[in-house]
Write a protein that binds this DNA or RNA. Structure first.
Lengths: 229, 229
DNA sequence: ACGGGTAGCATTGTCGACAATCGACCGGCC
DNA sequence: GGCCGGTCGATTGTCGACAATGCTACCCGT
């Protein structure tokens, strides 16, 4: 099996893509979990997965240990590794963690990188607007995800970024699992994000944090509502 | 959102704790990094380490991939794995991340588990007092660490706990690396923690968060001061 | 003497095979 | 008929060996 997608920008010479195989495989698995290709609760047969990825079981196991550490997989010794399942408590917990991380990111941004962050976030938000106007829900969700990735990246904190990445994968996993029941309230989503950018642009920290908290609560409400079905 | 970790009562039989070898090895390595047995920047020779741990290279590599994911090791392909080094920026980042996590933990505690947390934290704090009165710096640092572990565990949030564990290992690593130059201001440390418990006991959220932030800033100051040597 | 090239060594990355463990199925016994 | 013990197949966990890569030190040419 070939087809390891690598995005090389021609002409731009960068510090060579020196990623270990385990890291590449881990990324692949993360994507598969995010987009539901490996649904929650499913067992990951090592032999099968290794064959599909074109690597041996060794590197695959190394990659899976990374995801175990992230909490995306859980291991039952001598039984196998399973994609994490999430109940209502987990979703709540996920959003308290997200709020903790993104709130800290906002504070860092306001303090050190407000102007640059506003530009980046405005761009990310316009992508959401475009997706919403086309009614493309998948693209809207992706844009939403990228918005928050951009937000945390803007903090310039490697640790917050690392935490946020895992949390966003989990969030995306939930959305994928519940996508049939998830309400398509595109306009509200776009508006909330615009509110965040506006507050940031105004440099109003209190307003920004308030809106962020409201945004998290709304998202949590939507998810829990869908889960209740 | 209740506590996950339940203390086992004697005679109460529980579902045997079966940890995979990779997890055990990872814990060992974490301890070794914390206590400076594997100093920052040092390379981890696979063959040597595997021999010392009594396992083969396979499980050892799996364990190391976990630590890479945590950010405690960084990998240079075909070169080896190295214990993470931390500069002044990293220390700052470490403390913004810690503040984010522990602040969120405090909010959760005040909301849902204030009374139990006060009891646990008081116990942890008394251990600090005892260590300080004996002038045992190592024990004091351990007690400090346990205090913050208890704090985050009190939140009942698995994700906050997972993040905090890594951050606390990094913090301990810094302290170990700088232990010669680190000022032994034991009394101030004990007082700050007592202030945290008091604010929590009073249920004064604003005061608690203010003091937590001050505590983080003080610790950061101390570390940066030591680093400047 | 200095730079370039090359051979050798050590370490990492990968793979296939063996051993241990678990769940499921089945037959026998109470 | 229901329960217990045993066996089988499948999967995971572990290991040792091979291949690939990077670093080091030496040698040679200018």
């Amino acid at each position: 099996m070939l087809g390891i997608d690598e995005q090389n920008q021609p002409g731009e010479l960068e510090p060579v893509q020196r990623k270990s195989t385990a890291a590449i495989v881990a990324d692949q698995l993360r994507s598969a979990i995010m987009y539901g290709s490996l649904p929650p609760g499913s067992q990951m047969g090592e032999a099968d997965l290794a064959a599909r990825l074109g690597v041996s079981r060794g590197p695959l196991r190394e990659a899976m240990q990374r995801l175990v550490q992230e909490g995306l997989l859980h291991s039952e010794p001598h039984r196998g590794l399973f994609v994490a399942t999430m109940d209502a408590d987990d979703i709540r917990d996920l959003y308290t963690a997200r709020l903790a991380v993104e709130r800290a990111a906002c504070e860092q941004i306001i303090r050190y990188r407000r102007v640059e962050a506003v530009a980046e976030l405005t761009a990310a938000h316009s992508r959401m607007v475009a997706a919403a106007s086309r009614g493309d829900r998948g693209e809207l969700t992706d844009a939403d995800q990228e918005f928050h990735e951009t937000l945390v990246r803007g903090s310039g904190s490697p640790r917050l970024q690392r935490m946020a990445r895992t949390l966003l994968v989990e969030k995306r996993m939930c959305l994928t699992a519940l996508q049939d029941k998830y309400p398509a309230d595109a306009q509200a989503l776009v508006d909330e994000h615009r509110g965040l950018v506006a507050a940031l642009e105004a440099g109003d920290e209190l307003l920004l944090l308030t809106r962020l908290e409201a945004h998290m609560n709304d998202a949590l409400e939507r998810l829990n509502g869908s889960l209740a079905e």
